[in-house]
Amino acid sequence: MKTIQNLSITVLVILLGFTQGFAQMNGQEIMEAVYNNPSGENIQGQLEMRLINKQGDTRVRELQQFIKDEGEVEKTIMFFLSPADVRNTSFMNWSYNDGRDDDQWIYLPALKRVKRISSDSKSDNFMGSDFTYDDLGDRHPNEDAHKLLGEEVFNGYDCYIVESVPKDKDYMYSKTVTWVIKENFIGIKRDFYDEDGDLLKILQIKKFEKISGYWVILNTQMHNVQKDHRTEMIFSEVELDQPIPSNKFTERSMTLGR
């Protein structure tokens, strides 16, 4: 779950090597610049997840989350704060760098038991949201062929528009198109196209801020245009690089609540 990192507490840093005056970059270079933004090692904060269906019904979940990058493995633990009947339910994810499937656990306080759950697919949706696990993670730029489509002012930012076509033809998207802000290499908007080449989802970054020297995304929205279902993720009280003990990410810790 590299993502939560990307998504939730994705931290994007302006790369020193690239400056505005630099010669015209190509699509590959732009996406590498986005990917190579280092992130903080320890991230914690609150996540409010709003799921909105076609009828406009909204479900809100609040979580406290902790993320720690231990090199080989990135560990995430989340505790539900609301709704009240799922309070203290916790979810833990270990994501491995070597491409192994993630390990996932869930603790249900009513059952007083930790259960391992299987994460068979990167294309599964994260917690019933419109984000797949893969949408949340950092996809390596070498997995796609990139092409710079042009430049555009989007929401007041000078952006590159880059089209990325996966080299793996069986991937869940046939292509994505990303709007990347020129000055800080934050991807501010991304269109996802399904296997038939039709527009499936639109990701937009609504708010980002510089915290502890990093660019942090504070509000991001995914709109599945085919189902007309939306997920909004709002991050608050974000703290970066504060030490989190390793034993925070254990089954025992899951049962203790935050």
Partner: peptide
């Protein structure tokens, strides 16, 4: 609580 947590698990 139990029912709500089962459904959450199902969704996840």
């Amino acid at each position: 609580e139990m029912i709500a947590q089962y459904l959450l698990l199902y969704e996840m």
